[in-house]
Design a protein around this nucleic acid. Structure first.
Length: 501
DNA sequence: AGTCAGTGTACCAGCTGTAG
DNA sequence: CTACAGCTGGTACACTGACT
């Protein structure tokens, strides 16, 4: 049953569901061998599978947070615990505490006032709508309903509200909230839900697209106003494309002894980025004379709000941008194009590319991982398809112990998993078992190969990183294959770029 | 003189990406 | 996990040169 598979993924195999007198029974197995069961007030029918899944996930969140199964269920769905009669309306109290909480955070310099009035406002608004909740779990449960499961906003708002509750029951908050009723769960995971669809990948601009777009800008317009705007924006986009800048960064450039530096510091919750030296990988910096133009303070767009904001408006109004916009490109795509160039044309390691772009390797892999790992994925898929192909050719007749239903289903759908090997052997389906074993070995070896490569890369890149920064060739022409090879040896990069595979 | 289209600017609300 | 900047999609208004 798809529901069970789903639950296995989201909460683990310790949580099992089944039927009990027409209702859903939840059976939780703990590490010490004990079990706890609870019959949920949900009919055991396929139509309820979503509801069952959500309920189990929420219960699991609370159990992880230290409650037993029964308590967790009742806290969430309020069977036997009577709703406490608040002496003063919870609604007014929570809203008051929310304001106090905000004032405290601002006073203690924990957040900027702008963050309170912008980001927290969304959460505060939602809090007011559901502030008649009977306790912390109910409050968070209902507050989250407004947004899609797994969405970023749902996470953020629940975090805000939970933080407010935590503050309210603490000394800092003068214990304004009664602990028994308003203690938030230790883990919010169960309230977030699972994301339905993955986010879109970053869409890079190809080199040719950048060049033809820049050429299309009306720098010779008859209208002096349009001409001036086009000249300024062209310069801005050239900078973003050549050096992989964030739009906002064009406002923080400085030339030091002929080197271009970006002084922009991106602040965030737990840290900030560093000032970095900018490098152009291809001939654009010299062809467009960018460093001298920055040194001469050539005019950039004014952008009184944000550069990306202004750029978006400008781009939207360019005819030649239309088709690019349709392909999902944004002002950031100039920067993404830089990343693409670094990997596909120059075969730079993730570490070096990330350093050039001024973010962590983690962030880099998250945004651009699909371009760097494509070859591994392809390899794995190829092997897997080969296994399925054999099954198609040889059918699935066999005798022996009956197959578990799920394995049988997968066999019929030609979607066997490596772990089905044992069951298939018992059923005398040796051919298919063999296929599973082979597929597993291949997947493992691909993974091991990748692991080994990554750690080797990391060690070498760490040693070479400093040197690499000094030595990146800034030739006026695209580098020859020999030059690329030489450069890669120089920085100790041994991995093959994806196009050579 | 009046109208139109293109541009810059500002603002809003809600959502998303990124840092470590 | 949390703070902050950016993105999306929208509205509004002033200004300017071109056109009628």
């Amino acid at each position: 049953m798809a529901l069970r598979d789903q639950l296995k993924l989201s909460v683990g195999s310790a949580y099992r569901v089944g039927e009990q007198r027409g209702k859903t029974k939840l059976d939780v197995r703990f590490q010490n061998g004990t079990r706890q069961l609870k019959t949920l007030d949900i009919a055991w029918v396929p139509a309820n599978s979503r509801k069952i899944q959500e309920s189990v996930e929420k219960v699991a969140g609370l159990v992880t947070g230290g409650r037993n199964v029964k308590e967790a269920y009742e806290a969430l769905f309020g069977a036997s615990i009577p709703v406490p009669e608040a002496s003063e309306s919870a609604s007014a109290l929570l809203v008051q505490v929310w304001e106090l909480f905000g004032a405290y955070k601002i006073r203690k310099n924990l957040i900027k006032e702008s963050t309170w009035s912008k980001d927290y406002a969304t959460s505060g608004k939602r809090l007011k709508e559901v502030s008649d909740a009977k306790d912390a779990f109910d409050l968070l449960d209902r507050a989250g309903d407004k947004w899609e499961a797994g969405s970023r906003q749902r996470q953020v708002s629940l975090q805000h509200i939970s933080a407010m509750l935590k503050w309210g029951i603490s000394r800092e908050g003068n214990f304004v909230l009664p602990k028994e009723r308003w203690t938030p769960p230790i883990e919010l995971k169960g309230f977030y839900g699972d994301k339905v669809e993955a986010k879109q990948d970053a869409v890079p601009l190809q080199d040719e697209e950048i060049i033809s777009f820049l050429e299309s800008l009306p720098v010779e317009s008859k209208h002096p106003r349009d001409k001036e705007a086009a000249k300024r924006w062209k310069f801005a986009f050239q900078l973003m494309a050549a050096f992989g800048l964030r739009p906002i960064e064009i406002k923080h450039l400085q030339v030091d002894n002929g080197e271009l530096w970006c002084n922009y510091i991106k602040r965030s919750g737990a840290g900030q980025t560093k000032r970095r030296r900018l490098r152009c990988l291809n001939e654009w910096a010299t062809e467009w004379d960018l460093i001298n133009r920055v040194a001469d303070d050539e005019a950039l767009p004014l952008c009184k709000v944000g550069v990306a904001d202004a750029a978006r408006t400008y781009l939207k109004r360019q005819k030649s941008w239309e088709s690019l916009a349709k392909a999902g490109k944004t002002a950031y795509s100039f920067r993404h194009g830089f990343a693409l160039r670094a990997h596909q044309q120059y075969g730079l390691s993730v570490r070096i590319a990330a350093a050039l772009m001024g973010h962590s390797t983690d962030t880099h892999t998250r945004s651009y991982g699909t371009w760097t790992d494509e070859d591994e994925i392809d390899k794995a898929l190829e092997n897997w398809d080969e296994g399925k192909l054999n099954q198609n050719l040889f059918g699935n007749a066999g005798q022996g112990v009956a197959l578990p239903a799920d394995v049988q289903l997968r066999l019929q759908n030609n979607a066997l998993l490596p772990e089905d090997e044992g069951a298939l052997r018992k059923a005398n389906l040796t051919f298919h078992a063999e296929q599973c074993a082979q597929a597993r070995d291949r997947i493992q070896s691909v993974a091991m190969e990748k692991q080994a490569r990554l750690s080797e890369e990391r060690a070498k890149a760490a040693q070479a990183e400093y040197k690499a920064f000094q030595d990146i060739p800034l030739g006026a022409k695209p580098p020859s294959p020999e030059a690329i090879q030489q450069f890669r040896e120089q920085i100790g990069y041994t991995g093959k770029p994806s196009w050579e595979n």
